[in-house]
Design a protein around this nucleic acid. Structure first.
Lengths: 112, 112
DNA sequence: ATTATATATTGCAATATTACGATGAATAGG
DNA sequence: CCTATTCATCGTAATATTGCAATATATAAT
């Protein structure tokens, strides 16, 4: 029915899914990579950088902000975004907590 | 328009987005965690474990398989799934390549 | 062959996402 | 005050996702 049954899952599972959803669009990845690269935070240069309309970029920025991955600071007329370093660290650890849970499958990888 | 303009982005950006999309549902996280935990790979126990219909689980499994995260082996009547260890390692490195790109912001976190 | 078991696929309804033009709000400069 | 600039929000169209019942397929056992 297009609606996710979040109540069936743990808090951690839902948290990971929400964060993954924030990463689940190449424009948002591109925005994050841009921010990672230019540390000094950026606004609507993204409109020129990516080939998307201003409204679309704004929408993606809002989603990244809702997920807590980025912050926005008013800078006169323009809006300056940047990655939230603490959240970023949390997210990294949350994902790696999952990535690292894989077992060592013995000498000949007989997992399955 | 509901369609992602993949041609605007790099191969890596699209790859990350596709993988993130595979993670972007708590049921799929739950399935992966189950597989990570029971190493010995699992099939429709997931239907009992999670509270979702068999068809729904099957659909999620297909998406995880399409993303390359899991493999399916026919085991008599049933289907045995497991995580693809090599792909898992690739995915981990791809995500960490992004996570680790964050700059050290100097003594007082003056990023923005 | 028939039945039981296990999983995949199809078809559909409800909802979510993506994209953009148009419009609104807020600031800076004249 | 008027205008330009920058960004957010609204409304809308196109498409994707989620979930499940029903049905199909495939193997194993009797």
């Amino acid at each position: 029915m297009g609606i996710t049954k979040t109540d069936l899952f743990t808090k951690e599972q839902n948290e990971l899914a929400v964060l993954a959803k924030a990463f689940a669009h190449p424009a948002r990845i591109a925005i994050l990579q841009y921010l990672l690269d230019s540390n000094t935070c950026i606004n609507g240069d993204l409109v020129n950088e990516l080939g998307l309309a201003q409204a679309t970029i704004s929408q993606h920025l809002r989603e990244l902000k809702n997920a807590g991955l980025i912050q926005g600071n008013i800078e006169g007329v323009s809006m300056s975004y940047c990655i939230d370093p603490e959240k970023w660290e949390d997210v990294k650890e949350l994902f790696n907590g999952m990535f690292d849970k894989i077992h060592n499958c013995g000498p000949k990888d007989e997992c399955c």
